[in-house]
Write a protein that binds this DNA or RNA. Structure first.
Lengths: 176, 176
DNA sequence: GACGTTTGTTTGGCTATTCAAACAATACGG
DNA sequence: CCGTATTGTTTGAATAGCCAAACAAACGTC
């Protein structure tokens, strides 16, 4: 399978992920979640929410009351938590560590939260924990990175020109 | 506009991005790129490629010869390079720095390369450059992170439980 | 020049996601 | 009991991608 086709092969789609998280958040804030509440929260029509939620019910991620109240199954809850964790990890990394403005960080995180693997999420979490552990080494490095960014002026002078920098270092390691 | 709806609002879709990159790579490796070549490279039918490439032609990202040979417009080339740069940056970060296995890093990068903003890409590039600059501080930190990872054993013991760790540090800063 | 291959396009079908609009069921007020 | 509002579902239409299959044009071979 070509790598690029794996884009669609995720546990849940972006839309489905947000339906699950909407239920989770509504339960936490309002105590209940119905089709209408999910639709309102996601700013889509009740019809759309109804259909998507029906599919999630059939997949066993969402459960419905006798009274039409929606709940997450154990599996659904785990999935929602997983994605929410990834989002928080990404926002923290982009904003707190890289210094991307908060709203841009949130947009980027929202786009990719349901796409990154558990493995990458875990490693990134470990990295963030390490950098924010308060250890002298980490603090110094973060400070140094801030200065480095300032020195570079607008890093935009570089404009994502990755190639020139150090891409082939590895190949050339052997050549030396 | 709800943040979560921005998922679809990108310069190009995942599919379109890969059509552009396929042309770019085919031109580099074979010297030419036709509809059939793009289709073969992406492992889709010629029909699908034909339609997607037609749309890209209409958007001015792809140009066609008198002889049906495909080329990228200036804009198309820039876009392809941008996305390719982001992919390389992401792979480097996931694999070289976080220690995610190479194929997992590539899969993750492929999924999100066309989604992250220029700003995040630039900051991430700066961060990578800084960490891989060979400076003593950076090297020590990377080594320390590796040890940290080993100590934690399988970080899976933590399982993306972001919340407990330090999420609310900021709110609590003020409380003290 | 007839036959087979390659190439590019078009068509019909499928899935997922959205909307708008129609509809049914339930509930509340008077 | 009638009218109105709320809720949830269904239906028809749109878009984006994909496939399979049919098709036309061009090229090669003998």
């Amino acid at each position: 399978m070509e790598t690029w086709k794996k884009f669609e092969q995720n546990v849940v789609s972006h839309s489905a992920a947000h339906h699950l998280m909407a239920i989770s958040e509504l339960l936490a804030s309002n105590g209940y979640a119905r089709v209408t509440d999910v639709a309102r929260r996601l700013d889509i029509t009740r019809g759309s929410a109804s259909i998507t939620l029906k599919a999630l019910r059939e997949r066993g991620l969402v459960v419905e009351d006798e009274n039409k109240f929606l709940h997450l199954s154990e599996q659904g809850r785990e999935l929602a938590n997983l994605i929410q964790s990834k989002r928080k990890i990404l926002i923290t990394f982009f904003h707190e560590i890289l210094g991307v403005p908060e709203d841009a960080a949130e947009t980027d995180a929202c786009k990719i939260e349901h796409l990154i693997s558990e493995e990458t999420g875990e490693k990134l979490l470990a990295f963030i924990k390490f950098l924010m552990s308060g250890s002298k080494k980490a603090d110094e490095l973060l400070k140094a990175f801030n200065n480095y960014q300032l020195e570079c002026g607008d890093i935009s002078s570089c404009h994502l020109c990755f190639d020139d920098c150090f891409l082939h270092d590895h190949d050339q390691d052997n050549v030396e």
